[in-house]
């Protein structure tokens, strides 16, 4: 995923909001964005696992990113799915709203300040200082894997 970063200064992000946060995931990692789907809950599973859904015959695990970041659990009926390809398979992140695809300049990037602590510090790789707001870069691998 760093291939684009090293070859050019520009990167493209798929953005979405979660609570009051504005996140971005490198666009090449995103398989698709879909509306809320019917989920099958998985009892006994870690809290961040929202359920399983049927994506054209493929069973995809949906992760509640909000829970992962420590937001209170909300109703997910309105949630959108950002379906992401990872080395371990396809997962879906439940987010509040889908934003635009934005192109950013690497020079706008800055790692998170030390005052950012806890889980968020692990999941947020840094921020792009866009005009008017900060685009937070999500560390997908960490977001998916075991709770910190």
């Amino acid at each position: 995923m760093n291939a684009t970063a090293t070859t050019s200064l520009r990167e493209t992000f798929c953005t979405f909001t979660l609570g009051d946060l504005f996140f971005g995931v490198e666009v090449l990692q995103v398989q698709e964005v879909i509306r809320h789907q019917r989920m099958t809950r998985v009892p006994l599973a870690p809290e961040r696992i929202q359920g399983l859904m049927n994506l054209r015959g493929q069973i995809v695990t949906a992760l509640d990113l909000g829970t992962r970041l420590g937001f209170a659990r909300r109703s997910h009926d309105e949630a959108m799915n950002v379906v992401i390809r990872t080395p371990d398979g396809v997962v879906s992140l439940l987010v509040d709203e889908i934003g635009d695809v934005v192109e950013v300049n690497r020079q706008q990037f800055e790692p998170p300040p030390d005052t950012l602590q806890g889980v968020s510090r692990e999941l947020i790789r840094g921020a792009y200082k866009l005009e008017g707001r900060l685009l937070l870069v999500l560390d997908i691998q960490k977001a998916i894997n075991e709770a910190a």
Binding site: V42, L44, A45, P46, I49, I59, T61, D88, G89
Partner: peptide, 11 residues
Amino acid sequence: LCDQLQSISAY
């Protein structure tokens, strides 16, 4: 099941 769920022995 995906990796995160494989540790649950009930499934």
